[in-house]
């Protein structure tokens, strides 16, 4: 089943004098359980592409479907609610809130969608990522690798259908980077997520099912 689908999507930035085509017409989809990576030089439009899928900006033309829903056509508030429900973000500098412990990062999700906090769920998730002994630590007490694993835990916790990772290994050394990407791939398969990872490091793509290259707004399969 296609969890992410883009149909004839373009993105044009118009500053009044000049039109810049950041994303040329693109058709693209990711199946459940598929781990996709997008590589390309900086400024090639990778991040624009990812933020369009994440609904942080809307395409100039075309449609984005998340889990069969016309995501890009929703109103901003509904899109935010949908994003909270369906998409897990993992960002370069980690998406963790500095004043919450690892456990509280996850509990925040329960507070927002008004569900019950289940300590056992949290423990088993953190165990999978081998950070269960860091439950009561603040992000500033964690190493870079541990922080990204906590970020993965946060992204997976509310059971979204899509995981979007923007340079998740940028602040890590090679060993840690491979470790994080491997975990990401493993969880994608195990939990049947559709995962997109944007990276500039080609070596990390060995865990990915499909690799795309982005160059000057044109996306092509490698």
């Amino acid at each position: 089943m296609k969890l992410i689908e883009l149909k004839n999507v373009t993105k044009v930035f118009d500053d009044g004098r000049k039109k810049i085509e950041a994303l040329k017409e693109t058709n693209f989809s990711v199946e459940e359980g598929e781990f996709v990576s997008i590589i390309g030089p900086s400024g090639s439009g990778k991040s624009t592409f990812l933020t369009i899928i994440g609904g942080l900006q809307t395409p100039t033309e075309g449609k984005v479907f998340i889990n069969d829903d016309k995501f890009s056509e929703l109103q901003e508030k509904k899109r935010a609610a949908k994003r909270f429900e369906e998409i897990g973000f993992i960002l370069q500098a980690s998406n963790l809130i500095p004043f919450l412990t690892v456990k509280d990062q996850l509990q925040l999700v329960n507070k927002i969608n008004k569900t019950k906090f289940d300590k056992k769920d949290v423990e088993s998730l953190l165990e999978e990522l081998s950070i269960n002994d860091l439950m009561d630590k603040y992000p500033s007490d964690l190493s870079g690798g541990e922080r990204q694993r906590a970020a993965i835990a946060r992204a997976l916790y509310h059971d979204p259908s899509v995981i979007l990772a923007d340079e998740p290994t940028a602040s890590l050394d090679t060993d840690r980077a491979f470790e994080v990407v491997e975990i990401l791939g493993r969880e994608t398969k195990k939990k049947n997520k559709a995962t997109i990872m944007v990276t500039h490091d080609e070596r990390l793509t060995e865990y990915c099912d499909t690799v795309y290259v982005m160059e000057d707004g044109v996306l092509s399969k490698k």
């Binding site: 935010a80 609610a81 949908k82 994003r83 909270f84 973000f89």
Partner: peptide, 15 residues
Amino acid sequence: SILGVMKAQGISSKY
């Protein structure tokens, strides 16, 4: 910036 990240994750301005 933290609040921005939270909003990117879909946490509402209202919350």
